[in-house]
Design a protein around this nucleic acid. Structure first.
Lengths: 231, 231, 231, 231
DNA sequence: CATGAATGAGACTTCATTCAT
DNA sequence: AATGAATGAAGTCTCATTCAT
């Protein structure tokens, strides 16, 4: 089915690489705006000011181009998380970073790509779908790690599967983003992010860390602190 | 714009109604599996074992057929919620009902329709989009009511917008469903539903401010400790 | 190609004849409004409040129905002329009757049928065309007779072919009618008819050869004069 | 309503222009032969020996193609009239030119386009109709001007509306042309044109230019002439 | 290398017509 | 006698893709 043949000869060189970047940039726009089916190679070529044939000189076809667009997008996101994640801080702080960054990335880039992945990734024929599974895994890895570390530290409850928690964090964000798009409303990213964390954090807390114990802990730490200060 | 032409003549009668039901059933399948763009009238007709012309005898066209499919689907869901919601019970019990029913409806029907609504509702030209807005409202109404009643009773926190809470409930469910589809894994609905409520319920509870602060303090001290240890 | 088979069995009887008349009446409307191609059997059936199948019970098909509509229309027109023509009076009076009646018939019935005949009669495949030739002959017969009689009496010139005169009378009327339709303007039939006769009658009079030459001379001298003056 | 979408990209270049001319040439034939509804893009493509897609590469669609065909045809006619009209000569000579040129243009090109305009221009939905109104005006302008100038000079009667005279000239020509087509008979253009003018001219003359006066005028001009010659 | 030009395959849709009931 | 229902055939149009230049 899927042609695996490479285009006659993909050009190489500095100029060629620039061309590839241009095509990818514009394709990302078009796929994001229109979705896979409604996007056309004509539209992409026209926005670039080149002929359709040129696009096909550098990419196998529409499908391959779309896959590449999505891969690149994932890579960017994953990089951003891996590099920025404040690993040393509390799980809550890490979550806050994750949520805010996520909202930023999606709202800036538009939710188009998000929708693209969600709807095209689901298409029956494993046309695009199978490409995404590993990407999805890498993409959610920072969150999963965050949760796992928090669980080890006792900061996060361990009575429920991590995958459920992941859904409880990613799901609302996607939902909010679509809502924002659908209503064409501006979103206050900072506020939304902090509200979201305020809402969800209690859901992640260990259920058995009770106020009583916390108070005792607080007292002891305070006492220890004063002891040091007094010394 | 909107075509007003009636199909040549929509038959009416017992046999005709059966045919309409058949077409709708199969169309729901096809749209759900393939999405709007990839679904074809040819496919629908073939699965039904009739000619394409027959489909067009009963529906104005692909678009109208799809709209009808979605409307019917929403109606089913809304009915189920409105009739089954245990209004007398606690907010938590009502939420449990909502979540479980939701998962059931979606998993039985497949998430295809959900994806259909989400991706087509977002399409550039508000071709299908505008049909959905009122449906969406009716569809989320039971949940919003539930939350509002809980808030009045003091069962649910009132320091965050309802819309955020709505997203925090619907979002995870959609996410789980897509995950289930993508991995083609069976889902234990009862367990997933109860886990989900166990996870989310604390997020909805009124905040005990003191406890909240203590928890934050606890988390940060722990993190500081680990930093020292790690260094 | 053209099926010559009769419909299974054309019903007969008083009720059947009424039905046929109804179908023809409505079909005439529809064909006149929409032209042959744009008219549909569905439209005809719907306006009648019967099923399409019923139409096919009484007529071979769309084509045959249209032919019959046109034949009937011609028959009406021909009858009107043959019965009303004031044969005893002067050629000019007869022409006046012919012109006025013609305008009346066409404007009342709409020019739709006229257009139908003109455009369908011309279609390449002699589908409808060949049916019309004899009708056209009968239809123009009253006019041709009128002219021939006038010529014998010396009331009408005999230096030009009759067919040309026929065109000079029928042509303008059709032109006026289309103009009226195109601009959706009301036409004052009496005035238009008398103007038309006033205009055309001199064209039909026997030529006074000498006067004619003098007139030509006068025109040319005048033109030459203006040329000099203009220079 | 009116689609604004451009074809994917209309090629521009020497070869492309040739192709466009070819498509227009063949389309003109097909529309002329069959009328708008019966003409098919398939037929056009087949006669050209290209795929249907090629036709759609150069034109938005059937409708646009037809509009262009008609516009071009009108332009040709209008140019011919505007350039060839012998403005300096007598009104009769100008009319003779107009009639003969008209017959030539129509008989060479076939009356198909004439019929196309007349029947499609009248179609219920003003699909094509509205395109024609301005063209019609430009097209009849030379004739109207001719008549107006003649009237000012006293060469043409002023007791009847110009529009009626226009119909009395254009109408017969169309009628003759259809007759020619319907009977598939050759037409002697020169003879028909001169006969037509001979027939119609008396209809346009001022009714009060009488033989007596003309004779006197003739005598005087003759005398003047001889005086000059004698000198 | 870039592209102008062409196209095969397939989409949605319409409608005259048939036939069992 | 009437019709409900179904459909074959055809039509317009779109788009990813190819290939010679």
């Amino acid at each position: 089915m899927e042609e695996i043949t490479t285009p006659r000869r993909v050009p190489a060189g500095a100029k060629a690489e620039q061309r590839i970047r241009d095509i990818l940039r514009v394709s990302r726009e078009v796929f994001a705006e229109l979705g896979y089916e409604r996007a056309t190679t004509t539209e992409i070529a026209q926005r670039l000011g080149v002929s359709e044939a040129t696009v096909f000189t550098y990419f196998h076809g529409k499908r391959a181009l779309c896959v590449r667009v999505i891969e690149d997008w994932y890579d960017e996101i994953i990089d951003t998380f891996e590099q920025g994640m404040p690993r040393g801080q509390s799980a809550r702080a890490q979550l806050a970073f994750y949520v805010k960054t996520h909202l930023q990335l999606f709202l800036i880039q538009g939710t188009g790509l998000c929708a693209l992945v969600l709807s095209e990734g689901r298409a029956k024929g494993p046309d695009l779908g199978e490409v995404f599974v590993p990407l999805q895994r890498r993409y959610t890895a920072p969150l999963m790690d965050l949760l796992a570390r928090g669980r080890e530290n006792g900061e996060i409850r361990d009575d429920l599967p991590l995958s459920l928690m992941r859904s409880a964090i990613l799901g609302p964000m996607e939902h909010i983003l679509w809502d924002a798009i659908a209503r064409e409303r501006e979103v206050d990213i900072d506020k939304t992010a902090s509200d979201m964390v305020a809402l969800l954090w209690p859901a992640l807390l260990p259920v058995n860390v009770e106020a009583e114990k916390l108070r005792a802990f607080y007292g002891e730490v305070g006492a220890a602190l004063r002891k040091v200060e007094g010394a």
